[in-house]
Nucleic acid binder design. Structure first.
Ligand SMILES: [Mn+2]
Ligand SMILES: [Mn+2]
Ligand SMILES: [Mn+2]
Ligand SMILES: [Mn+2]
Lengths: 238, 238
DNA sequence: GAAATAAGTTAGTACGTACTAACTTATGGT
DNA sequence: ACCATAAGTTAGTACGTACTAACTTATTTC
């Protein structure tokens, strides 16, 4: 009861909103730059003015550092909060899919709410029941209880040159429709795709998935991440 | 998508607080009288003035009817909300105990938060995974998805005359300490107790539980509910 | 480099929730 | 019937979160 990290003050529980802002900032920051007000606003479906206000509050709590007109970055404590939330989110999604028969295209919203209500104890029990998985149903890495996570930046299908072959490892989980669209075409984590053709000017990309050929838009392709991108070996045989 | 009850307007989701007030009012009302401001305040650990304010808001939403200086009663819609919340709470408690190894003395707080975040879909899936149980780990009846629930008023141990034998069916789940205290004495749902002695003036009640004799306080006895209270038959043999 | 546009901030408003302090109503004991 | 006390309400304050409108700063384009 009296252990606890020295760096952590009493820390009155954060609100659902504050937590979601931190997670959102974390995700935007993974792109490299600080999180811009408008990007946060758009992601969260909130007016930019409201974001300005919240950023000041989060800064006052020491969770982000804001450079006026420049964007926000998580501080170490803010990052810790974001990673714990991400862990909760992803374990919940995994649990819902594996233990309760949810479709992988249908868990995000539920997790978006439950993540704020689930205790660390519950999350650990779920994780254990799942055998401590390291990725969620969309291929996103699950941070450990200690806050470690794989942050490698992955290439997307949109980044692949013609002829490249790659394994799908992860995709954006925001839109169930999008996930169903992909799944219907065999584009799921673990699948192997090959870039058969690319139209210029962000045109459609033609993929070989299994035996079938699929043309997908550039935006869709940019939301599907791959691992081990490789040009087709000349002696190519899959 | 366009079905829906005629009586139900758009119904912007209620807040966690509003839901908890309704549940609390429901529980107090089970005692027969309207829920008094102070009782609600005490149950929720909130100032009476705050309760007055919230009751007006709930009344404006048509969820309670308030008689000034007299207390609040749920309306039909308010009652429906309370029962759905109760269903969520109790199914969550059951799930945590049965599927995730929680102790029955340790689930209430977790459920108190999750109940506001879990969708009807999630609750139905949990219920199904449990075989649609009709009572939670503390013996409380679980309302159906349609909002039906067993509201029989049960006698408590404190109501039993000397010599009576009864089956424990339910107990208050607010205080984990209390539940552990009871469990340690064999007083759990399903157990049979016999009243061996009673001190007057709300004094302790001596129970026979299994082979052992236990003296419990009147307050504790009043929080343990029993079914099939019966005087020991003259030819008594357990 | 100045004007046009985009991005971001502040000011002012609203609502829900909670608090304390001060007041009002109801009730029970004599 | 009266009054002391308990119960309940209102008024005034605070904070978090969100909004729109108006303004300011940064960036892009010519
Ligand atoms: Mn998700
Ligand atoms: Mn969320
Ligand atoms: Mn409970
Ligand atoms: Mn609750």
């Amino acid at each position: 009861m009296s252990a606890g990290r020295r760096t952590a003050p009493p820390e009155k529980a954060l609100t659902r909103q504050a937590e979601d802002y931190l997670k959102c900032i974390y995700e935007i920051e993974q792109g490299g730059a600080p999180a811009a007000t408008t990007d946060i606003a758009e992601q969260l479906g909130i007016a930019a003015a409201s974001v300005s206000g919240m950023l000041q509050r989060l800064a006052r709590l020491g969770l982000v550092s804001v450079e006026r007109y420049r964007g926000a970055r998580l501080t170490a404590p803010g990052r810790a909060v974001a990673l714990q939330l991400l862990r909760r989110h992803r374990i919940i999604e995994s649990f819902l899919v594996t233990k309760l028969g949810y479709g992988w295209d249908d868990v995000h919203e539920e997790a978006e709410r439950l993540e704020h209500a689930a205790s660390a104890e519950l999350i650990d029990r779920m994780a254990e029941a799942l055998g401590n998985p390291t990725t969620d149903p969309h291929g996103a890495p699950i941070p450990t209880a200690a806050g470690r996570v794989d942050e490698r930046r992955l290439a997307s299908i949109a980044d692949l040159p013609i002829g490249a072959r790659a394994r799908v490892v992860r995709m954006s989980d925001r839109d169930p429709e999008f996930l169903r669209y992909l799944a219907k075409r065999g584009i799921v984590p673990g699948a192997t795709v090959r870039v058969a053709a690319r139209e210029p000017f962000d045109g459609p990309i033609t993929l070989t998935v299994g035996r079938a050929k699929q043309a997908v838009g550039a935006a869709a392709a940019a939301a599907v991440y791959v691992d081990g991108a490789a040009r087709e070996p000349r002696t190519g045989k899959v």
